[in-house]
Structure formats: structure tokens, C-alpha cells
């Protein structure tokens, strides 16, 4: 088994390397072909004060006069040594910006992830156990409508109801304005992340609920549940002893694999709530042509999503006895 997992990890790491190289090539080509002029983007509003000669010097310094291939290799070398460059809009190393922004997002993402997972699982179990009932139909209706509605729209709706009309949640940001970071309490933080997290959860439950429902129906129609019924097991007993055991693994896998959607959703949700996390930084970087930051985020999100998928695959290897033990024997 140890050997199996080691080989599995090695294969996965190799794939990750390939993925990152592919991402690097794509980002480089796309940005080279994009209309953004790196010097314009860097200098910004001071453009008028720069003479064409100075411009040429900068271009030379940066190696912009080199052929594309040479530039790519130079850039790759920098990347490999861990240097992602400096963010233009924040005037800080890209890794620092991503680090601090991600920390802000992380709490929100974690809460959204846990909430959507737990809620979705519960909804799926209820719907599956009572398949065909009005409760099942209501849950399914909810899941289908929510799965089809855009994140920013749900975010705006929540903002209108809870922040504008009811005034029980803050209208923006991760902390109250005018309070020093070190003075912000945990409750204030929670208060600020509740709406963006709720937005992501409300949408996130749809997938897992529908999937769990389907899976539970399959389990309830299985031979082993028929046998359990023949032994006098009740519906609740069947769900407790056989249902959860058999649906938790696929649910977990799905939930880890959904990190990509969660990340994508956070870009929109953070924008609506002006929540200064990584998602908002993405939009800012894109709107203001902060190429180094944008590329840094592209790499980071690829890594993030890949890790999610990796954990999803790994849970099967570790949790499912048929794979865990089956491989060794």
C-alpha cells in the first residue's frame, strides 16, 4: 500500500509539473500577444514625462528587444527561482501580495466550503431518502435554480436584503472602516465575511446536494440495502449504517474537486462585497494591467485547484478499503 501511494504521488507530481509548464507557456504567449504594452503598464500615468530614448533604455534593460524564445527562457528561470516579480499596483513582491490576500480569502473560503459541504450533504440525504416527496421536489427545485443563477446576482441580492434593507450585515470590506488591523476582533471579521461566505455556500450546495441525492437513491436500491431491510433495518437505520458510509466518500471527493468553482465564485463574490481577498485582487490586477500579479494569481490558482483535485483522488486511495487493501493483496 505504501508503495502504491508513493507511486501515485510521484505520478501526480509529474502531472503537476506538466500542468505548471503548460500554464507558463499559455500565460506567456497570451500576454505577449495581448495589446498591453509592458512599459506603458509599468510607467502608467507618468508616460508623458518619458522620452522615446528613455523608453528604449527600459526596453533594453528588460530584454524586450530580445526574441520571444529568449525572453521566455529568461522569465522561466526567474520563475523557477521563486521570483514572481513585483506587483505594479501594490508595489510589493507578487508572492507577498498573494500571501496576504489569500489569507484574507482563506477564512471566507473555508467557511463557505464547510457550510456548503455540510448543508449540501444534509439536503441530499433528505431528498434522496424521501425521493419523490414534496420535500425532495423543493430541494431539487432549489438546487436547479441556484446552480443556474450567477454568483454576482446572488451576492447582490443578499447585499440588498441584509445590508441595505435589514442593515444587519456590513455593506463592504473585511474589517470595519477606520479600525486598525490589530484591533479588529474575531466577531467583526466573522460579521464581515458572513455574506460573501453565504453567497458561495448558497450556490455551492446545489451540486453536492444533487449528487448526494442521486447516490443515496442508488444505495437505497442496492442489494445490500434490500438485505438490510430483510433483517429488519429501518430507513433511518439504513441511512445511518449503510447510507452515510457509502455516500460520504463520493461527496468528499466532489467537495474537494469543487475548489475550482469555489475559487471562481470568490472572484465575483469578493468584487460585489469589496472583500479584499485574492478574488478581488484578481479583478484589480486584470483591470489595471498588473501583469506580474495576474500571472502570479494564475499560477497560484492552478496550484490551488490542483491540490483540491489531488486530495479528492487521495481520499479514495486512503479511505476506500477496496482500493486501500485491494491493491496490496
Amino acid at each position: 500500500m505504501q508503495l502504491g501511494i508513493a507511486a501515485f504521488m510521484l505520478r501526480k507530481l509529474l502531472r503537476l509539473a506538466l500542468l505548471l509548464i503548460a500554464v507558463a507557456i499559455f500565460s506567456f504567449v497570451l500576454i505577449s500577444l495581448s495589446p498591453i504594452d509592458p512599459i506603458d503598464a509599468y510607467v502608467g500615468a507618468d508616460m508623458l514625462q518619458i522620452s522615446p530614448e528613455q523608453r528604449d533604455i527600459i526596453a533594453q534593460r528588460w530584454g524586450l528587444d530580445q526574441p520571444m524564445m529568449t525572453r521566455f527562457i529568461l522569465w522561466l528561470r526567474q520563475l523557477a527561482s521563486g521570483n514572481l516579480g513585483t506587483s505594479i499596483i501594490f508595489n510589493q513582491p507578487v508572492s507577498t501580495v498573494i500571501g496576504s490576500r489569500f489569507q484574507t480569502s482563506l477564512q471566507m473560503l473555508a467557511i463557505a466550503w464547510l457550510l456548503s459541504g455540510a448543508l449540501g450533504l444534509a439536503m441530499g440525504v433528505v431528498a434522496g431518502a424521501r425521493a419523490g416527496s414534496w420535500l425532495d421536489r423543493a430541494i431539487r427545485f432549489y438546487a436547479y435554480t441556484l446552480a443556474a443563477s450567477p454568483t454576482f446576482w446572488v451576492a447582490l441580492l443578499l447585499l440588498l436584503v441584509f445590508s441595505v434593507s435589514l442593515k444587519i450585515t456590513p455593506i463592504c470590506c473585511a474589517t470595519p472602516p477606520g479600525v486598525l488591523t490589530k484591533d479588529v476582533t474575531v466577531w467583526q471579521r466573522l460579521h464581515h465575511l458572513i455574506l460573501p461566505a453565504a453567497t458561495l455556500s448558497l450556490i455551492g450546495v446545489a451540486n453536492i446536494a444533487l449528487h448526494t441525492r442521486q447516490k443515496l437513491i442508488e444505495v437505497l436500491n442496492s442489494d445490500y440495502v434490500l438485505f438490510a431491510r430483510a433483517q429488519g433495518e429501518s430507513l433511518v437505520g439504513i441511512i445511518r449504517h449503510h447510507g452515510l458510509r457509502n455516500i460520504i466518500l463520493p461527496a468528499l471527493t466532489l467537495q474537494f474537486a469543487s475548489l475550482s468553482e469555489l475559487f471562481g465564485g470568490s472572484v465575483l463574490a469578493e468584487q460585489v462585497f469589496s472583500y479584499p481577498g485574492l478574488g478581488k485582487a484578481t479583478v484589480e490586477a486584470a483591470l489595471r494591467s498588473d501583469v506580474p500579479l495576474l500571472v502570479g494569481i494564475v499560477f497560484f490558482s492552478a496550484l490551488f485547484v490542483y491540490t483540491g483535485n489531488l486530495i479528492a483522488d487521495l481520499t479514495y486511495q486512503i479511505v476506500d478499503p477496496r482500493i486501500r487493501i485491494g491493491k496490496s493483496s
Binding site: D223, Y224, F227, R229, A230, G232, H241, H242, R245, R322
Partner: peptide
């Protein structure tokens, strides 16, 4: 409903009638 599993028991066709993710001792104990 009262009798099954108590006075009347089924011996199923195959191992497919056991929960694939539960140890057999636990299942028989259940």
C-alpha cells in the same frame, strides 16, 4: 416487519448483498 430479521431470516444469493464498505464482523453483529 416485526418478524423479519428475528423469526424469519434471509440468506442472500451473493456477497453483493453485504455492504461493500463495512467489515463483515460488524455486519453480522448488526
Amino acid at each position: 416487519q416485526d418478524l423479519r430479521g428475528k423469526a424469519i431470516a434471509l440468506i442472500p444469493q451473493s456477497i453483493g448483498y453485504l455492504d461493500p464498505l463495512m467489515q463483515v464482523g460488524q455486519q453480522v453483529q448488526r
